[in-house]
Design a protein around this nucleic acid. Sequence first.
DNA 1: CTGAAAGCGCTTACAG
DNA 2: CTGAAAGCGCTTACAG
Lengths: 340, 340
Amino acid sequence: MKKVTIKDIAEGAGVSISTVSYVLSGKRSVSDEVKRRIHEQIELLHYKPNAVARSFASRKTNIIGLYCSKYPDTENTDVFFLKMVNGMMAAAEKRNYKVLLLNEMEGSENFVIPFDKTFPIDGAIVTTTINSHHYLNQLESEEMPFVLVGKPPKDLKINCVDNDNVKAAYEAVELLLKQGATNIGMVTGSGLHTRLSDFEIGYMMAHNSYQIAYRSENIIRHDINDPDYVQKIMSAIQENGLDGILVSLLFTRLINRLLTDPHAPHSIPIVSFGFDLIAEHYSHLTKDVHFIQSNAYKLGIEAVARLIDLIDKPESKAKQMLLSPELSVWRQSKELQQIE
Amino acid sequence: MKKVTIKDIAEGAGVSISTVSYVLSGKRSVSDEVKRRIHEQIELLHYKPNAVARSFASRKTNIIGLYCSKYPDTENTDVFFLKMVNGMMAAAEKRNYKVLLLNEMEGSENFVIPFDKTFPIDGAIVTTTINSHHYLNQLESEEMPFVLVGKPPKDLKINCVDNDNVKAAYEAVELLLKQGATNIGMVTGSGLHTRLSDFEIGYMMAHNSYQIAYRSENIIRHDINDPDYVQKIMSAIQENGLDGILVSLLFTRLINRLLTDPHAPHSIPIVSFGFDLIAEHYSHLTKDVHFIQSNAYKLGIEAVARLIDLIDKPESKAKQMLLSPELSVWRQSKELQQIE
DNA sequence: CTGAAAGCGCTTACAG
DNA sequence: CTGAAAGCGCTTACAG
């Protein structure tokens, strides 16, 4: 069974190949009669355009690549990633694009993936990874349009989409103050670098704006892989006399302890980053939790929207988009009230 | 800046286009001297083969499509899906394939997606969806190799990969018996259809093998969207005097209640399906939980491996692969012991 | 409103 | 071990 091509349709309808092509693309007006005959043949022969041939001729695949790091991640960032991909697919579909998952090539020590026509893509989305700086430098030299999801290195003017984490931490502190906190702690990962995170900047700016005493020991840095971090952080909370806490979702076990342990101090208000990612599992909260939305889905949408704009007109210059934080509260469920 | 093609390399190295192509593909032996000159030119001109042109000429894209349903899913199946995709990417990478995410086309009421060269794919993975039966029938008539992840309709002999859910439930019942249970309940979703699930069959087979009394009311069917299901199921557990429970992970709130509420009856052993998908969030268990692994990653691996085999030699006949259940236990964490 | 033809950048029989 | 050439199935200037 030979495959049906545009030529078969042209012959069947008694017109030229180009006319069939133009009917299919709608790029030129064609008489209704010819259109009818062509569609009749398409129906009759079950013609389906060949995507690869089309891409080859038009130099356009309508596919965007999503570069996925192989670096081990926590469950939480996995959920973030999944929701981001969902957003990307939604945005891509609207504009007739598909998403191709690309992972690191075998044998490369660094996170290096070909960023050219080695893959059938019109553009790419890159997420921040450990050695992204080195990597992004390389990307800049290529002609492929791309958008970074995450914070770009300062010296690179590239297209990117990210949460406004400075503002997020700032507003989180504001919220804790409104709830009566006076001595606010922040629990954050001990990254590879000792550089200040945007969260810390926002935290500090809020302390400055509201003229609250700032104590460096209130910024509690911990490796999330330390098996005993919960105990250590709980101790620090007590020793420092904290009455409000800002905590990253990465500290799953700490969150569990603070939010579900009936013996935990009920009085300390907590703001978590990205609690929406795992809220489903917390029908057993012992208190309400305020959180700053992860925006995973939205980031996916925006990244793809920006990328497709770039593909459509590549001359447009680099733009940095920051999503404003949205604060929400996840209420202690009915479930639990029945228990008590 | 014009893009570099195979022609430029051929001219630079003073050989024919075909020789360059053969050096690149390794499909024919070429003298070392010619090879050297060609690689020199490739290096010099930064030549990258054009994936689309290559696919067009060879009629092979090395891309497999993953058909994603848009139907709303619970968080848990999302995690399942994510891990499955991870498995697929791992298996695909090993054999030099990529994964293209495909979603339902706009405007189609049913779950109907083109299954032909409309997309640049060599084959496809399909997961079971609500109206998959109708859909699979359609797929069979196409020439595209595909593998279903899930249980196939009885009358279709197609390639598929799935968990052996009959065996899983059977072994779960066995495990509960070993733990001293004598009156075992099963909590399961109230699907659209009233047909028996594989889980129920396995449950019944175990009751038959071990000659335990079977009480139909011990199979507790509930809509997971019922906001009050926890209370209702807890009541049923008490009324029926159950001393062992088999529960689907879909009942997140019930799991929370049974596993994290210190007031919940500690004595009843529980076996959960797929607890591994969310175990990360349960550092606050009040008891150990036995579970049957979801096999999400493994299913992804197997589905892709099978699909690529099919692509390589399409004449091989349909094969149904069932993964045997693996029982595991998730121990109550140290965390919690410190609390008590 | 329509057609003839070049060309997209490779692969691969065919011939030597 | 190597080359000349057909061809993969479309798109799109160009010409009318």
